[in-house]
Amino acid sequence: MRSRFRYYRPTSLSEALDFLALHGTDTAIVAGGTDLMISARSGDLQCKYVLDVSRLNELRPVAMSDGLLAIGSAVTHAEIAAHPVTRDVAPVLAKAASCVGSTQIRNMGTIGGNIANASPAADTIPPLMVHNAKIVVKSASGERVEYLGDFVRGPYVTILKPGELITHVLLEPMMSGYRHSFQRIARRRALSIARMNVAALGLVDGNGVIQDLRLSVGSVTPRPCRMTVAEDVLTSNKPDKKVFWEAAEKVSHEMVRWSGIRPTTEYKKPAVEGLVYRALADLFLSEG
């Protein structure tokens, strides 16, 4: 049976925080509703109030500030995919946002909802990881800033406490000369094991040697992380197919190290290796 709750739509961020200070433990936040409405329909959502933050202007900016790109939590995937600033300084995130769900889902779903929901397959998470993203969290009593890798504790678990909400994310802009790639495998949602995604940023110096490489892979570790073992294989090498496969194997080793051998490993191992290879080849061997 459908969950039942009251609805409250604050007109300012401070009003939202005051509401959460009083009712935080009984409240679920809603932005686009694309995750929340699924659990409301099934009755899994248990709360007294739903607090609608989707129209708060304070949660809707996309702008550079103090050298970082700030994206409000209530900015939709469609807006991120189309925004000239994200396309310019975080093209790997813009690309990922353009791959989410469908036009309808992108018009509703927000980056804050994607992060707070913390699905292992969330498409914005690997791009945010390669941009060293920090999550800005506010409550009536103050503000804290956490790296995304610390903010998400495990599948569908974050360190967000009752009374808090995500106001925005902060990304290091992609420096000039870097290349980027986002790749994903997406089947129907019901088969969520088949969802996997990779974000990569890379810089090659004048001698054709990889100077910096940032790689994050969704759905293979319990928490978002950078694939440093694979990054180390690539850095200081020239990009070629052999070293790409070597890096891809490091990633699948990481996956097995975290999750052990499972019935799905036989399918997932070649899939993740193929996907990492595809991202690296796209990064370095394709034009533009």
Partner: peptide, 13 residues
């Protein structure tokens, strides 16, 4: 003006 799926939108929205 934007396409959305009405089953995922709360009526008060």
């Amino acid at each position: 003006g934007k396409a959305i799926t009405a089953c995922l939108m709360l009526a008060p929205q």
